[in-house]
Nucleic acid binder design. Structure first.
Length: 731
RNA sequence: GCGCCCUUAGCUCAGUUGGUAGAGCGCUUCAUUUACACUGAAGAUGUCGCAGGUUCAAGUCCUGCAGGGCGCACCA
């Protein structure tokens, strides 16, 4: 059928259809090469000496698919990236994925067990790794396609993976340097053991679950002078001391005395010690010290040189030499000890108290503190090459008001970060899993060898363990830029401009990146940290983990990516959680359609009018509108610089719909009908000016529809036509 | 125990140096082929958690309290 308006591309006569548009547009961006700053310089889009804007994508875990949180992060990062690219910066956004060691391995182990009934030991290291790699590859491919679907203008030519060869080299290099500086050490210390995952985990990987426990008060024996209280009677066969406050008048006279006791079928030796860590008001004011199975008790034991007696093994079963308890699971052993106490008339009191259960973040297993030989990063050692500062010092100093410091948005998280550093203990980095960066240490008899490459000669055996996944994530801002090579990328793009991520990984990741970068490169990894909130369901539960989660990709299919992006950005300030609903997404689908129809109206009205960028002969009424618009754009620019995208998106939305469409366009109908020719010309130019301007400033937020409209604006109406992605930001 | 955040229209949330309240969704009435029904016009709904204080003026600043949520530590 013939179009009634021959100068208007026919597509504007039908409603906007994101489905036929988005894939095509993304492909055209990719083929243009403008995601890559080098190409932008080569093609004269960006000046070679332009200021730099760089950002690394927080690498999604290759454990599955993207959720709404990823969609929010991707949108925010893409807004920053597109804005700076249009501003003329040398703009680089590096994509990548995270191998996520424990998370991925336990996921694949779960699948294998479910489908084949086999455990990791049944398959062996080689075979399991093959399976995990295959799964990771598949997951990676899905994630990449999803990131594209979301419109991310990332430079795919620089894509990285936390476990690829280059990143592995960076990891080995970092390990070696820290080892040589004495910051990485191997030690027999109490660690958080996850019996379910059969590995250690760091303090930050513990999730505390609220519950109630029974608090038992008892004596070890009839002759023992002091009662103690515990929620874990089964560990008491590992006690080597009773600690009391040194000033506690009730117990002072017993300090220094030692007792041999038969307890629940085991022989224990108890020394009474005085220690200020004991709270005289809690329980009986006396602590049964179990150095092998409690972090606090381990520290007491260190202070008093107490022996360490492990009584629980890696399978959470009793390893103590007592016929009553040996090989029992801890829960069974607890019952057995209570029975025994009752039979001996030693149990004095039972009461229910609230108790936090420590569980492993990834497997849900109940953590069993155990002493083990593991690798640690010493956060309190003075580093000669850093003016005798410790890693804690370096991390603390990186945040602040100084020009070279890291700024966190919102700033309240600076306090959270600082507080975390105060409580930080040595970081246990070795994991007893197979998927990950293998520790670059080799053993031969009692010799130890640590280097980037394996030792020459026979009979060296590499350490079986792998590294905490956050070790490699910590290097991410510079391992992606080629470190340890002194590459042009590293020189140009580091420190990165912004790190955009969720506030829930400020310790896991943000702090570890600051640690690694300040230590290895002597500079901060990024200048600004923008922390977004967590996406929640209507009831406030975490969307990423619940069954009824809204899937971002199916929302993109249904309403268009631009609608999903707008719904995530509007009215969601940094650090605040976001309750997501499908209604909100639908509202912004309507906005896309509005924009589409505005375009139709403007192009129809301005047929034959050539867009003149420098046009100034506006009618008094239009001149006033231009002034108002300039004022709005200046506000918007300020807010873009301040990362207030939620305000900008709302303002543009309100102006485009309720000012431009509802008032200006309506009012134009009258002008085109009754106005004189100068007024008509003025209004045509004003409409074109406004459309051009708002397509540009909307582009970072809704890149697909704006680029699509732009690509089919009649050529004669737009001077110097370039793709919108590299157009110049107005004002 | 230390610290943080939230509490504004039925729902989800804005409200940037203090100047007697806004958006989206929903609701009511009207318009019926209009650039757009993925629409337009008009409208209703709020002692801005509670109690004090500072100020000419407080949703906004200060103090206390209550409810909800979160982080860290403790959890013998």
């Amino acid at each position: 059928m013939e179009s009634k308006q021959p100068n208007i591309p026919a597509k504007f006569l039908k409603p906007y259809d994101p489905k036929v548009t988005e894939e095509k547009i993304y492909k055209s961006w990719q083929e243009s090469g403008f995601f890559n700053p080098d190409t932008c310089i080569e093609k004269g889009v960006t000046r070679a000496d332009a200021p730099v804007f760089s950002i690394v994508q927080p690498p999604p875990n290759v454990t599955g698919t993207l959720h709404m949180g990823h969609a929010l992060a991707t949108t925010l990062e893409d807004i920053m990236t597109r804005y700076h690219r249009m501003r003329g910066f040398r703009t680089l956004w590096i994509p990548g994925t995270d191998h996520a060691a424990i998370a991925t391995q336990s996921k694949v182990e779960g699948i294998i067990y479910k489908e084949e009934g086999k455990r990791r030991q049944d398959l062996g290291r080689e075979e399991l790794l093959k399976r995990v790699d295959a799964y990771a590859k598949q997951s990676h491919d899905i994630i990449v396609s999803q990131i594209k679907k979301l419109g991310a203008s990332v430079d795919w030519s620089r894509e990285a993976f936390t476990l690829d060869d280059k990143r592995n080299f960076a990891v080995r290099t970092a390990f070696k340097k820290m080892y040589d500086d004495g910051l990485i050490y191997r030690g027999y210390r109490i660690v958080n053991w996850d019996p379910k995952g059969q590995t250690t985990i760091s303090d930050d990987e513990i999730v505390y679950k609220e519950g109630t426990g029974t608090f038992y008060t008892f004596k070890y024996s009839k002759d023992f002078p002091i009662s103690i209280a515990t929620t874990r009677p089964e560990t008491k066969v590992g006690d080597t001391a009773v600690a009391v406050h040194p000033d506690d008048l009730r117990y002072k006279i017993f300090i220094g005395k030692e007792y041999d006791i038969d307890f629940a079928g085991a022989k224990i030796h108890i020394k009474i010690v005085g220690d200020t860590a004991v709270d005289p008001a809690f329980g009986t004011g006396a602590v049964g010290v179990t150095p092998a199975h409690s972090h606090v008790d381990w520290e007491i034991a260190e202070r008093h040189k107490l022996p360490i007696v492990p009584v629980i093994n890696e399978y959470a079963r009793m390893s103590v030499d007592s016929p009553l308890l040996k090989d029992k699971k801890v829960a069974e052993a607890r019952t057995a000890v209570i029975e025994w106490l009752k039979s001996q008339n030693l149990l004095e009191k039972e009461e229910q108290i609230p108790q936090n259960i420590a569980t492993a973040e990834r497997t849900g297993g109940v953590i069993e503190p155990l002493p083990k030989l593991q690798w640690f990063i010493n956060v309190n050692k003075k580093i000669a090459s850093h003016k005798n500062k410790t890693l804690k010092d370096l991390m603390r100093r990186a945040i602040g008001k100084d020009k070279n410091d890291v700024t966190i948005i919102p700033d309240r998280f600076e306090k959270v970060y600082t507080h975390w550093i105060e409580n930080l203990r040595d970081w246990c980095i070795s994991r007893q899993i197979w998927y990950g960066h293998r520790i670059p240490v080799w053993y031969k008899g009692d010799q130890i060898y640590c280097d980037i490459e394996p030792p020459k000669g026979a009979d060296w055996t590499q350490d079986e363990d792998t590294l905490d996944t956050w070790f490699s994530s910590g290097l991410w801002t510079f391992s992606t830029l080629g470190w340890p090579e002194k590459t042009a990328d590293l020189m140009t793009y580091h420190p990165t401009s912004v790190l955009e991520t969720g506030y829930d990984i400020i310790f896991f990741w943000v702090a570890r990146m600051i640690l690694m970068s300040t230590y290895l490169l002597d500079e901060v990894p990024f200048k600004t940290v923008y922390l977004h909130g967590l996406i929640r369901n209507a009831d406030g539960s975490k969307m990423s983990k619940s069954a009824g989660a809204i899937d971002p990709l199916s929302m993109c299919e249904k309403y268009g990516t631009d609608a999903v992006r707008m719904s995530l950005i509007v009215a969601t300030g940094p650090g605040n959680d976001i309750k997501m609903s499908e209604d909100k997404i639908r509202a912004y689908k309507n906005f896309s359609n509005k924009l589409w129809n505005i375009t139709r109206f403007v192009l129809t009205s301005a047929i034959g009018e050539i867009y003149d960028e420098k046009f100034v002969a506006f009618s008094p009424g239009d001149a006033k509108l231009v002034v108002e618009q300039d004022k709005l754009l200046k506000e918007i620019n300020k807010e873009m610089e301040e990362f207030k995208y939620y305000l900008v998106a709302e303002k543009i939305y309100a102006y485009v719909w309720h000012e431009f469409a509802d008032i200006i366009l309506e009012n134009s109908k009258d002008i085109f009908k009754n106005g004189n020719s100068a007024d008509k010309k003025s209004r045509k130019q004003f409409l074109l000016h406004t459309l051009v301007r708002f397509l540009k400033i909307l582009h970072p937020f809704v890149p697909f529809i704006t680029e699509e409209i732009w690509s089919d604006m009649p050529e004669k109406n737009i001077a110097d036509k370039k793709p919108l992605i590299i157009e110049t930001w107005p004002i």
